[in-house]
């Protein structure tokens, strides 16, 4: 089991309140991702759940037990740190066995569990090595192994992939997703990378300045962002947001349209602009358009290729059914 409920949780460091009163429920077996720009409080929130930070007020309930005052090791949660936080003086085997040894489990049971975890994570050949001898990806697996053997109610991941290179990151992303499918245990995952959030999450929690901006499934957030912030944060390249007369024509303060929801023509369309940089990826083309009179730059994304170069005139037409309208407060209009 691993149902985690935050009720009116706040956190202050001295006089500075970093988490204003916040409510959140993470269901058992769910893969929840906390995402937001750096300094948004997502790591603090994770550490509150872990018990590594004291909650200033409010309740943290894990599986119907109030865990607010329970020390980290007694909450039944396991954490994978950004820096992996392996014990450098212990072998891989001892690292993975450490939480079990602390729980005073008998040696035979420890050995069985460690072997099993090592097998799942392809670490069997490295058990006697020290963390210093391993690659980044292998260290990451050891950190996960140390979490798995505890059979926790939930796994907490604090930006676990940010120290890996791009190629390895994609691989580990898949491995963690597979692990979730296999174990079916609650996972809470913190990242600043919206791609990780979109690809892995059952439920995304978008945070800004300690506030929850929106909670929902990846596609919910993509299709119906609750406000301009979420609209701009989810999706790559970013949604184009424009204010002014063009927005007023649609009866809104701001309107947004995604680069991939824009039709492009070299001859006619709603708005005229000039091509700045065209990035040809083969499968797609990103075109940065200037001098539209709408915003400094509008980004569009088209499938396949189009023959435009720097300085060419170009015409853009947003797909009206996929237009997002926002009011003066930046909130989505129904």
């Amino acid at each position: 089991m691993g149902r985690i409920v935050l009720e009116n949780v706040t956190k202050s460091f001295g006089d500075a309140q970093v988490i204003p009163p916040l409510d959140l429920t993470i269901e058992d077996g769910e893969f929840a991702v906390f995402v937001g720009p750096s300094g948004c409080g997502k790591s603090t929130l994770l550490r509150l759940i872990a018990g590594l930070e004291e909650t200033t007020s409010g309740r943290i309930v894990i599986d119907d037990n109030d865990a607010t005052q329970v020390p980290p090791s007694k909450r039944g949660l396991a954490m994978v740190f950004q820096s992996y936080a392996l014990y450098p003086h212990m072998s891989v085997r001892k690292n993975i066995a450490f939480p079990l040894r602390m729980a005073k489990m008998d040696q035979a049971a420890i050995d069985t569990k460690v072997e099993a975890a090592a097998k799942i994570l392809n670490l069997a050949d490295y058990l006697e090595q020290k963390p210093g001898q391993l690659s980044g990806g292998q260290r990451q697996r050891v950190a996960i192994g140390r979490a798995i053997v505890r059979e926790p109610a939930a796994f907490l991941f604090d930006e676990p992939l940010s120290n890996l290179d791009a190629a390895l990151r994609v691989g580990m992303r898949l491995e963690i997703s597979e692990l979730h499918n296999r174990l079916n245990t609650t996972m809470i995952y913190v990242t600043h990378d919206q791609v990780e959030a979109m690809t892995m999450a059952d439920k995304i929690v978008v945070l800004r300045a300690g506030n929850i901006e929106q909670v929902g499934s990846p596609l919910d957030l993509y299709h119906t962002p609750r406000n301009i912030f979420v609209a701009g944060f989810i999706g790559s390249p970013k949604m184009n947001i424009i204010d002014g007369p063009e927005a007023e024509k649609q009866g809104a303060t701001s309107i947004g349209f995604r680069p991939e929801h824009t039709d492009v023509s070299t001859t006619e369309g709603m708005w005229k602009g000039r091509v700045g940089v065209a990035e040809h990826l083969g499968s797609d083309t990103f075109i940065h358009v200037h001098d539209t009179g709408l915003a400094d730059m509008i980004t569009v994304r088209i499938t396949g290729d189009i023959a435009v170069t720097h300085g060419d005139d170009i015409y853009l037409t947003p797909q009206m059914d996929k237009l997002h309208k926002f009011d003066a407060d930046g909130l989505r209009m129904a």
Binding site: A50, L52, S73, L77, Y84, F98, P99, A103, R146
Partner: peptide, 14 residues
């Protein structure tokens, strides 16, 4: 010593 390692220890029940 990275603070993470001490915290990992706390999570692991020391």
């Amino acid at each position: 010593i990275p603070k993470d390692i001490i915290e990992a220890g706390q999570m692991d029940g020391v």
